[in-house]
């Protein structure tokens, strides 16, 4: 393909090819300093290409293809090419990842222990992880948690944080401007702006962590916390996994051990400051 970018994020290597320069330039900029795929061999290929040859120039629209493709994935306008690249990488993970059990969750780490946060879109797990990543925790990822069935450890997958709508202003107030990508208006999910993980997240990218607490956050309610039993956590985490079924018995073993050994809490929070305080309190209790 005409333009390409190779990158390793955590343990996973990607090769992104594009018919246009812009998305690759944006990736190069925001992923500066990330390593190459291990041995130069990418786990997954993503292709950003026009649906029809003339659509490269005429109202260019970016179709998201690759090793794994959804037949009904709608193309995006070229101005949202960075988002298309990120979605393409997500898609490869969701459909193709078989080494790690993939949980739709964000992860942060402190003192070698990992905090796993999972919930529906809009529950705030992404913003919360990004914020904690600026407040003394190591950001490990905001989209997928990678659970190694062999060791029970979580591997970091520190992709760009995809901030949506109100979260964009909250984070721009906190973080230097050079870590942000372009503001993408009118995407299928509203306004999106990508945030580059900080130096600490990048330098410790290859260090896995043992899970110590699982949170199921819910945004927009008065602060509250309740214990989540092992069987409820199991059900919710299988629902949050794209490859649980495809991975078979190793996934069953890993997930049943996780929910048996690691406490779970459902938390409600009215605002992100309240959430940070609540997380700190529950963390102290969990590690006590």
């Amino acid at each position: 393909m005409r333009y390409r970018f190779d990158v390793r994020i955590g343990p996973v290597g990607f090769r992104v090819g594009s018919a246009w320069r812009q998305p690759i330039a944006a990736l190069r900029d925001l992923y500066a300093g990330y390593p190459e795929p291990d041995g130069g061999i990418a786990d997954f290929t993503v292709r950003l290409e026009p649906e029809r040859p003339w659509r490269r120039y005429l109202r260019p629209s970016v179709a998201i293809h690759g090793d794994f493709t959804l037949p009904d994935a709608a193309p995006l306008p070229l101005a949202q090419g960075l988002l298309a690249a990120e979605m393409g990488m997500n898609l490869q993970m969701a459909l193709g990842q078989r080494r790690y059990l993939l949980l739709h969750a964000s992860v942060v780490e402190r003192d070698g222990w990992a905090l796993l946060m999972t919930g529906h879109s809009g529950a705030g797990k992404s913003t919360l992880a990004a914020l904690l990543g600026e407040r003394g925790w190591r950001f490990m990822g905001d989209e997928f948690a990678l659970l190694d069935p062999g060791t029970g450890l979580l591997h970091a997958f520190p992709r760009l944080v995809s901030l949506k709508n109100a979260a964009i202003d909250a984070m721009t107030a906190e973080i230097a401007a050079d870590r942000f990508g372009p503001l993408l208006m009118g995407t299928p999910k509203g306004a999106i702006r990508h945030l580059r993980p900080n130096a600490a997240a990048l330098s410790a990218m290859d260090a896995p962590a043992r899970p110590a607490l699982i949170l199921f956050p819910r945004y927009g309610f008065a602060a509250a916390a309740r214990p989540v039993g092992a069987s409820e956590a199991f059900v919710r985490l299988t629902q949050a996994s794209t490859n649980y079924v495809a991975m078979g018995e190793p996934a069953f073993d890993a997930l049943s051990v996780l929910v048996r050994d690691v406490p779970g809490r459902a938390i409600d929070y009215p605002d992100t400051e309240g959430a940070v305080a609540l997380v700190e309190r529950l963390w102290t209790e969990a590690l006590a």
Partner: peptide
């Protein structure tokens, strides 16, 4: 190479499933 071997080991496990 190790990276290629890992990818193919995953593919074998997936095919088995």
């Amino acid at each position: 190479p190790a990276a290629a071997a890992r990818i193919l080991a995953d593919a074998r496990a997936s095919a088995e499933q």
